[in-house]
Design a protein around this nucleic acid. Structure first.
Lengths: 145, 145
DNA sequence: CGATAATTAATCGTGTGCGATATAAATCTC
DNA sequence: GAGATTTATATCGCACACGATTAATTATCG
């Protein structure tokens, strides 16, 4: 018997579909800001810490340069960031928010609340679940490293 | 203060990165089967129930026909499934496992165990977490419907 | 100091994902 | 039963996501 091979019992499938479900909730909110979800994550990270490098941002978002470079070029075209080579180390590209990019933060302040509402859960329960999922992610990342 | 806008506190970000982490664990296992992760999900669903329609599979996997059609064509090219129009309703495309597609199931039996190992958690804890994530997904899906 | 190695982004090819639209078949309506 | 509507899948354009490779720069080591 292969009672292992049941889709609905796969935690990976739950995570995979939950990720898509989040995307669908975010979509209309981020459309107003002119951002996709991964672009929004990059902006959130830069609002936390301006002047990050491509590699540094990639470590935080768990994304490769092959994903980030085109995404960041789109954010630059949109006028939200600038990409400039570091003078100390010409290999490194530093990401800096433009004034418009900084202003966008104000308009984005309402987004997290909408997501929490859509989840239909209290902040404490969400925080607990979030911590469990992060712990799971760390275990998975450790197993592949 | 915008303590809301902190990446590491976002449950969506935890889910998003956990989904990628699962993918990285699956990659080497599925490479041996010649499947991508979404292709694997489609095959698992067809191993559970052969003869599903494109629409039916899309409902189970929460995917649109615009995603599934090319994916299913690749599975057909790989020789794992056949896509045939229903004779009762010519709009419907029925998906049937080939003999090779059925045989693949045996080779896939070991995959779930590897994932559970990589998660570093007991089956009961995983099942509980899985149920919570599914409940979260349902709440999110309800909010957008 | 100069060859070699390591590091950082960028590029390329493949495969998702989805919204908008198209196409074709079935169903509904008058 | 002809025309309008609905349904099921396919197509197209755009944006990820990643592995493999490349190019440019910096670090290292003999």
């Amino acid at each position: 018997m292969s009672n292992q091979l049941k889709l609905d019992s796969f935690i990976c499938f739950a995570v995979y579909t939950a990720s898509h479900a989040f995307n669908r909730v975010y979509k209309p909110l981020l459309d107003e800001l002119g951002l996709t979800y991964p672009q929004y994550l990059a902006m959130v990270s830069l609002w936390e810490e301006d002047g990050q490098t491509v590699g540094g941002l990639g470590e935080k978002l768990f994304l490769e340069s092959s994903t980030l470079t085109p995404l960041l070029k789109r954010l630059e075209t949109a006028g939200y960031i600038r990409r400039e080579r570091s003078r100390q180390d010409e290999r490194v590209v530093v990401l800096r928010l433009t004034e418009e990019g900084k202003r966008l933060k104000e308009r984005a302040e309402t987004v997290p609340g909408c997501i929490i509402d859509a989840s239909g859960r209290g902040a404490d329960q969400l925080a607990r679940l979030q911590a469990e999922i992060v712990a799971l992610r760390e275990a998975l990342n450790k197993s592949t490293s």
